[in-house]
Nucleic acid binder design. Structure first.
Lengths: 204, 204, 204, 204
DNA sequence: CATGAATGAGATTTCATTCAT
DNA sequence: TATGAATGAAATCTCATTCAT
């Protein structure tokens, strides 16, 4: 009652994650069918369950992996940055924009499909997101304490900045008229000015 | 959950739109079942089709109505504003923030569920969104032409500003520590500064 | 996306119960597929859910209906019987055997598929079964109190009698060499003797 | 639940039979999954097939082994009994009750899961059951031929007796108020009386 | 002897939608 | 306008089983 086709092994799991991310991004989690996912991976629907525990589990792991990588990249960028708050802010913005460009699928899924997670999974993801936001909030608070930033409310400012930056990757197209570096520079300028800095401040 | 309270006077069609908006916002378009919608409206699933053409049609009309109202409100706000570009920018930002607060459902649905629309419907909605964005882009371009704004790219700046502002309503809670007016003021300040203006410029 | 064939109406629900009982009896609850059930009823699988809440629900209702009818029949038989304990015991045995013959499906399902019920459903069915058993236990206790029955333990005796009688309908075939009346008489004789009575005692 | 304790010495095949019997008894043949069986044995599902030919095969062997042991025990009990029919009947009843108590799993599976066997397997098991029933039928016929038993129909009487006795093990609990010996005595008394004997007849 | 990955079939259940009444 | 019963399609997931390693 069972036949063997091309027992590819470990790469199947990676293909499921890769194709799954693309399909969730394109159609949304609820609208993506496991039949379609299986077909594009090249296996039968039931075989998916040799690699994932459930559709929910797949979504959770995709989002979790993205956030963990994002946090690690941010921490690395901040460690490499000087202690000067404007420079650190510019470093964070540059990291965020460059990291997100080309990761539209991961970013969209991580932001849009949170509600599709069941409560325990959502709680864990929300905690990770808080860790990431805290990096920026801490940075803004430090700059304000040193009198370098003009900020009414660091938390609100952080949310506003993140919304602005993340939004960029929803419309950015690699074949557009702006290079990633240009886009990062434009946004760094806007963010620094929005915090009351002259654009040349914090230049590396 | 079954019968909607206080809806005795409203027509069934209005109840379907009201409840439908809430359910799509809470669960997402794909995850909202028409059975659930019918149950919360107080009718049977089949009866929905006396009021809507299809589930798609319901979604389209909800988004379209929201965008039309948003555009009208923006145009009214700009007509009432002085000709001075900083003042007009402040007026736009204030309008946007105040209009969006308390309309979380409409905003979220209009932004998140675009992908659930079929191509013709999506095209019409995208066109409406372009009309709205054009209001801000035109404003920014005018200000730059007068030498009042520091802007590398008005279109990119407009997207960044809209992303920042719209993001506010995804985390704003009416019982939070900030009033709508305070929130609008904070964001107006950030936006004006990000365009190279001193915060007091454009004050009404 | 939907077509109408022969909207038969209320009789569909009855057909589902009738065919469902037969299939559960023949294959067992777990082995009966709803596809098969739907096919034999003449509808599509999904249409079953216009009439049943779930497969579990179908099983529960079948067993519950059987037990309620069985209890009512037993109570009627005892009400019609004289007050004399041997006569009442003979009446109960005759009722039980005659009622069960020809109801092999109901009896088998009610006895064999209890374990397939979820705990709440099982609890309600077990309570009904206790009500039925209590009718016999009460009868045996009354007869022993009057010194008419030789019984070590009325509860154990009741279980033994019921097991013996119910077993009859698992092998009884209407086209066999014994008529229902003969079968009832044989078992009544064995039961009465097993309680220490002469066979002619309790004869009506 | 995962690894079976105290099974280090037993072979994997024996563990499969032991755990399989327990799971079939608890959930039923159809409801028991081979994945669950493998997990409780401590191996992967595929490895089961190093020890069993199929799920059907496992069920068949469990039932066959039980019936062969039951027949052997009955024959031993009858060989050890005196030639007197009442004494032989008492010996058979005592054997049956005592053998069955504590073998609830085997008995339930052998009786309830017959329908899950494919036709060839079922035929072989039914033949074994006939052999066992024949021991009692022969005994009853002999007793009737000697004029010791009051019996309308030895075959019907045998079925009634076996149903009564076997039923006892479906409700017997080792921690109940009756000992196995007491239970056997009660049933021996009922059976002997049901065949028209005074209770003390056939006492050993 | 055990494993991991695959299979085809099928499980129960939900979906949006239709339409005679 | 509302209803109840139907539809075809599809949903996610489990099943027993196979077999190269």
């Amino acid at each position: 009652m069972a036949r063997i086709a091309g027992s590819s092994g470990a790469s199947t799991a990676a293909a499921i994650r890769r194709v799954g991310l693309r399909l969730i991004h394109r159609h949304g989690y609820e609208a993506m069918g496991l039949r379609q996912l299986a077909a594009e991976v090249g296996i039968r629907p039931g075989s998916l369950y040799n690699h994932i525990a459930s559709k929910q589990d797949l979504l959770f792991r995709l989002i979790e992996a993205h956030l963990l990588a994002l946090i690690a990249a941010a921490e690395a960028a901040l460690e490499a940055a000087p202690a000067d708050p404007p420079a650190r802010l510019r470093a964070f913005v540059t990291h965020h924009v460059l990291y997100h460009l080309g990761k539209e699928a991961e970013v969209t899924v991580a932001n849009f499909e949170l509600r599709a997670l069941d409560p325990p999974g959502r709680a864990r993801i929300v905690a990770l997101r808080r860790r990431y936001e805290a990096l920026l909030i801490t940075l803004l608070e430090a700059g304000r304490a040193e009198g370098r930033f003009v900020l009414t409310d660091p938390r609100v400012a952080a949310y506003a900045i993140l919304a602005m930056l993340t939004g960029a990757c929803t419309w950015y197209r690699p074949d557009g008229r702006l290079s990633p570096a240009e886009l990062a520079a434009i946004h760094a300028g806007m963010v620094l000015r929005s915090c009351g800095l002259a654009p040349e401040e914090g230049a590396s």
